[in-house]
Design a protein around this nucleic acid. Structure first.
Lengths: 250, 250
DNA sequence: GGCTAAACTGCAATATACTGCAACATTTTA
DNA sequence: TAAAATGTTGCAGTATATTGCAGTTTAGCC
């Protein structure tokens, strides 16, 4: 007999290799009923480890870098994160905005009467901010990256390098207590690092499904993070390990 | 068998590359009925991930600047200028785009199949170019200027300063044979000067009503201009003095 | 304007996948 | 060891996906 955990491990390993799994194949392979496999996939999918689709599962996203795919995901959660994030902002601060749909949601919630100097390398965020009268916008230019709709490269880094911010909103690819803030490409990492380095307060804003899921490139250790903002209540158990590290939870 | 989710992924990836998709092509490619593709496109379009059009789909233009375009004057003239301007472009050129509604019209007329490296400090132009698959875009960042929707300042200038272009499209505030190309602010002038300095060919693209109306700050002498493009026929008498100076008229 | 071909919409039929339920099995724990 | 908790199964009913067809709309063309 094969245990639930073993099945889960098996599924996760196999999906990495094959990108796509059919439920009925899994059922025969694991020697359990189709219904059981279905529940397994649901649990893994709820944990954000794969994407359940009709008749099976695929990797979390086949188009991992495609911004449009993520745009309409977790809209409510992102709105909640944005509203909490805004409370950290005060007049006359200098604020860095990293790319990503969560930071975009935050930018979209900045009230009109707030006076800020915002620096960003995200084109959508720049677009959003043009309509706010009291925002002084500095755009960190560079080579445009289609998949993320942000700029990257030496120019981008050097622009941030000349500015010191009160607060940085960092988009999260993966966050894990031991590995810290991680990103998926070296280019992204290089930019996130400057943001962190030149900022008094680092805010990691992310939906909770990205917690405890490290990616490859280290941006900064978890201990450098000042605030962690998710859609969950700060008392939620999933957040306690981070609170214990001295990160303020909102 | 290919699942619905996979089809959606496929469509989203492909539309990023090709900008426009035909329904029947998709149907044969994906091995499903036309009707099914139609429903896929409808779902993706309802989710705001693309725009369904008759016979297929196109990228949703995520360009919020139609607000500003509303007060666009001389639309027909600018279109005519844009079409003439495009004829100067060849594959693999490096092109500078100055800000302004005329240069914007030119950018909007770049054909899909043209391979260019474009450098610009205009936010609307950057937005337009994001949807063109064969354009490599470099954005010259800096401090955002609300009135012109462009960047300005040291960062902008230094970005252009590191690049040499085959051709520059310069937006015209005023042009006059004796004063040359002139602009209204020192900041604008500083940027236009770098564009001109680092460019093999300078193209002044403007509606004819800006000819012979000098403004205050000198960008470059008229003799430096390679091409003058207006909505008028090159034989028009108002253009003859410029032709006499050795400027090619289109 | 009227015509034709292509594209769209709605419907019914079919196959497949999912959900909830009740029963049964296994593992924990008191 | 018995009770409780958790995991598993098959079944029945429900929902979803896909297709082809028939009828309608639309775009382009003479």
């Amino acid at each position: 007999m094969i245990s639930k955990e073993e099945r889960h491990d098996f599924i996760l390993i196999k999906i990495q290799k094959e990108r796509k799994l059919a439920m009925m194949d899994l059922a025969t392979e694991l020697g359990v009923s189709e219904h059981t496999v279905r529940r397994d996939l649901k649990e893994l999918s709820d944990a954000g480890l794969l994407r359940a689709i009709r008749g099976g599962a695929t990797l979390r996203s086949n188009i991992p870098f495609d911004i449009y795919d993520r745009n309409n995901l977790d809209v409510m959660e992102k709105q909640s994160i944005a509203e909490k994030s805004i409370t950290l902002l005060k007049d006359h601060q200098v604020v860095f905005f990293d790319g990503g749909t969560t930071t975009q949601a935050i930018a979209g919630n900045i009230p009109e009467n707030l006076n800020l100097t915002v620096v960003t390398h995200s084109l959508p965020i720049a677009n959003i901010l043009t309509s706010l009268p009291n925002i002084s916008l500095i755009f960190a230019g560079g080579a445009f990256c289609k998949s993320s709709l942000t700029m990257q490269g030496q120019q981008t880094i050097s622009t941030y390098g000349e500015i010191y911010a009160d607060i940085s909103f960092i988009g999260v690819c993966g966050l894990d207590l031991y590995r810290g803030l991680t990103a998926r490409t070296l280019e992204e990492t290089a930019i996130k690092r400057v943001l962190c380095k030149n900022s008094m307060n680092i805010v990691a804003a992310t939906t909770s499904n990205k917690l405890d899921t490290p990616t490859s490139f280290l941006t900064c250790p978890a201990s450098d993070i000042s605030y962690l903002i998710t859609e969950k209540d700060p008392s939620d158990h999933i957040l306690q390990p981070y609170a214990a590290q001295g990160i303020a939870i909102l």
